[in-house]
Amino acid sequence: MEDTEKTEEIQVIAPTDKVTDENWEPKIIAFLCNWCSYAGADLAGVSRIQYPPNVRVVRVPCSGRINPLFILKSLQVGWDSVLVSGCHPGDCHYISGNYYARRKFSVLDDLFEFMGIDKGRVNFSWVSAAEGAAFANIIEKVTEKTRKLGPNRLFKEL
């Protein structure tokens, strides 16, 4: 997949670099809600807060838009970790989107646990538009966690 090419709208594209154990760097895909977490990430950038460059952001209208299938598919195509972030409970731009999202996330979380799949690769968080520092902190945390887990071979080994 050449970078110059447009990609399909919702297609989750595999991370591009050829991964060997030597040059491996965690690659994290982050689904961020437009109103809070994306703005939070933006604030982190504007405020020049340093955080690891391992994350690629996908902006979604609301955390309620995130289908658990997005997360599973990301892991299947080879992202090392997935971060999902939305507004704090009560702050949703669409009033209740993140409450619904929370239920979906807990289903996914329990399913991973039950099937014996390492949960560390899927992370959920609440970040508001004012929490630039918190965003940077969470990215750091997730990157560190992923680094410890190593390259995602979850679906590759199958």
Partner: peptide, 8 residues
Amino acid sequence: QEFMVKED
């Protein structure tokens, strides 16, 4: 929501 990642 115990599964949420929290900042330190």
